[in-house]
């Protein structure tokens, strides 16, 4: 246990110092699981940068890091961070669900609620409402 925690000490220390809440650091079968809620998206980015510095290109596979952003609460403004394409808005939480709308790349939408860590219910300024993949949505600060 200690070896992995030592290797990623800078990352764990940074998560603690930045005020990550509900921080959980556990080891399971040679993989360090780091979970928590960062106060801002910038902190999440910082933690991922430190992780990438310790393990270039995240190729060792000895860490699973699941950091949410605390500012992503109902009513928050979210930016669509797809690479370039539109973001599908679906009727339900799942890629098998029909598409009911689209949000453009870099468009700002509102968070209504979180169905899960993966699927968030959002509303566009045009009034389209539905579920979208959380990984393409970043809280605007």
């Amino acid at each position: 246990m200690a070896a992995l925690q030592d290797k990623y000490k800078e990352l764990i220390d940074a998560a603690q110092a930045a005020g990550t809440s509900n921080l959980k650091v556990n080891e399971l079968d040679g993989v360090l699981h780091i979970e928590g809620e960062a106060p801002t998206g910038a902190v999440k980015d910082q933690l991922w940068n430190i992780y990438g510095k310790i393990d270039p290109n995240f190729l060792t596979g000895d860490v699973v890091m699941n950091i949410n952003v605390a500012t992503a609460v109902a009513g928050a403004k979210l930016k669509v961070i797809t690479e370039s394409s539109n973001l599908n808005i679906r009727k339900g939480p799942g890629t098998d669900q029909p598409i009911v709308g689209k949000a453009a790349h870099n468009e700002i939408v509102s968070l209504i609620s979180k169905q899960s860590d993966q699927w968030w219910l959002i509303r566009t300024d045009a009034g389209e409402e539905g579920y979208a993949y959380a990984q393409y949505l970043q809280p605007v600060e």
């Binding site: 993989v31 190729l59 596979g61 699973v64 890091m65 699941n66 860590d117 993966q118």
Partner: peptide
């Protein structure tokens, strides 16, 4: 980042 959020046991790359 997206895969880690799915709570896997490991991401083997």
């Amino acid at each position: 980042m997206a895969l880690d959020a799915l709570k896997p046991k490991k991401v083997d790359a």
